[in-house]
Design a protein around this nucleic acid. Structure first.
Length: 422
RNA sequence: GGAGAAAUGGCAGAGCGGUCGAAUGCGGCAGUCUUGAAAACUGUUGUACUGCAAGGUACCGGGGGUUCGAAUCCCUCUUUCUCCGCCA
């Protein structure tokens, strides 16, 4: 959520900046400025009434103390009018505040200067590439066929027991999952991240804190009885640890990592992209989260991208780094890099990581602040990235590293799998 | 799940209808003293909104109520602790 003070002061720059998202927000922003002005006016009125009634209450107290019953009772009568006024002002104030809040929730983050102009994924800019695309024989199989051939993943069993998008992993398929999780967590630990095992369900406040609510309501599984949400990413619990927190500058940088399953309803998505492991309702992911000083957040973002690149290099996968254009960027982000691996049998780029700087957008909702050198409380910057999401990594590993004898496990992963080939 | 107790500032902890944004201690910050540090002493120290400012308003777990006036009384929810039950 954008800060109202910022909208007040930099209205035009914000409207201009949001144009990169290919939507004209000028009407909405202007409505916010108006609502805010109206709210402030009513708030002032309400404060004045409250001040007056506080003054009178004191006066009445004093009169009672002095034993002037009659005068006190007379003064009491007068407060009735005031109370009536206070009530209507209060209702108006609450209504305007609520309205303002709702409007603010509808405004996405302002893309930073580095965000390329564009509308569709085709407009994303390739910022880096790595690895080499293997040349596979014509007989090369897609990962869903390989999974079946070597009995690694059972999609039908998932359909039977739960539903589409909830696969079972067997034998070396299951062990490969576990190996990847451990590999990613160990790498993160070696790079200074605190490992965390968070809850996999969160409350509503947390959903709002990181921006899944209210706009992405339908993306999450909701346990209605308890009003809990299954996490769509570890970002939600890991970042919400810092909700309502006041940090010292010396606490920066905060670096946490966590493995969690992720649950996504992905309502409305279907078709060829959902085959095999490409899009699941439940998948495993290791996430990295940073809380940073505003002056360091972009430097940090670059470092995080480099870190994820290094993981992909160790897994011997061909990849590219995309700087997302304004039209393809998430609601809460100010700058996002997507990392994609090339899955050679599908002949497709698969997104395996998304690394973003949210600047103060999440921190504002979270009330995540730090005390600066002057003792002022300022909003911190939050960042996160997948490091990494497993299913598409598995898809690419199976497809790219297949040969006539099976599938070769990358060297870095062998200590974790305990086997060199499938 | 049942029965009790509790929730106050960064922390600990008083206050239980008006003089309370809130005693006191610790911590933090500034100063005195010291070659420096510690100790001691002195001062200072919550957040947000609003206003050019002076100031005003709100906040004592959340929400609602009683009252001219609520940290204080009532209702409700949440959380924590103790005891009992159930379970890993």
């Amino acid at each position: 959520m954008l800060e109202i003070t910022r909208i007040r002061e930099e209205k035009d720059q914000i409207i201009e900046g949001l144009k990169k998202r290919n939507v004209d927000f000028s009407e909405k922003i202007n409505a916010i400025v108006q609502t805010d002005a109206a709210w402030r006016e009513v708030k002032k009125e309400l404060d004045d009434i409250a001040a007056e009634s506080n003054r009178m209450a004191k006066e009445i107290g004093q009169l009672f103390k002095e034993g002037k019953q009659a005068e006190a009772n007379a003064a009491k009568e007068k407060t009735n009018v005031l109370k009536e006024k206070e009530k209507t002002a209060k209702e108006k104030e609450a209504q305007l505040a609520d309205d303002l809040q709702k409007r603010l929730y509808e405004i996405p983050n302002v893309p930073c200067a580095k965000v390329p102009v564009g509308k569709t994924p085709e407009d994303n800019v390739v910022a880096a590439t790595g690895g080499t695309v293997p040349t596979l024989p014509e007989s090369a199989l897609a990962h869903w066929d390989l999974a079946k051939k070597y009995n690694l993943i059972d999609f039908e069993m998932g359909v039977k027991v739960t539903g589409a998008g909830f696969p079972f992993y067997y034998g070396k398929g299951a062990r490969l999952q576990r190996a990847l999780i451990n590999f990613f967590l160990d790498q993160a630990r070696d790079h200074g991240y605190l490992e965390v095992i968070p809850p996999f369900v969160v409350n509503q406040d947390s959903g709002y804190g990181t921006g899944q609510l209210p706009d992405k309501e339908g993306q999450m599984y909701h346990c209605e009885v308890d009003d809990f949400y299954l996490i769509p990413t570890a970002e939600v619990p890991l970042t919400n640890m810092y909700r309502d927190v006041l940090l010292n500058e010396s606490d920066f940088p905060i670096k946490v990592t966590g493995y969690t399953p992720c649950f996504r309803r992905e309502a409305g998505s279907y078709g060829k992209d959902v085959r095999g492991l490409n899009r699941l309702h439940q998948f495993d992911k290791v996430e990295i989260v940073h809380i940073e000083h505003p002056s360091k957040s972009y430097e940090t973002l670059d470092g995080m991208v480099k870190y994820v690149e290094n993981l992909l290099q160790q897994l011997e996968l061909p990849y590219r780094v995309l700087r997302l254009c304004g039209g393809d960027m998430g609601f809460t982000s100010a700058l996002t890099y997507d990392l994609e691996v090339y899955s050679a049998a599908q002949k497709k780029w698969l997104e395996v990581s998304s690394v973003s700087n949210f600047e103060t957008f999440q921190a504002n909702r979270l009330k995540l602040r730090y005390k600066d050198k002057e003792g002022k409380n300022k909003l911190a910057h939050t960042l996160n990235g997948s490091a990494l999401a497993l299913p598409r990594i598995v898809a690419a590993l199976l497809e790219n590293h297949q040969d006539e004898h099976g599938i070769k496990i990358p060297k870095a992963l062998v200590p974790y799998t305990g086997f060199e080939r499938i």
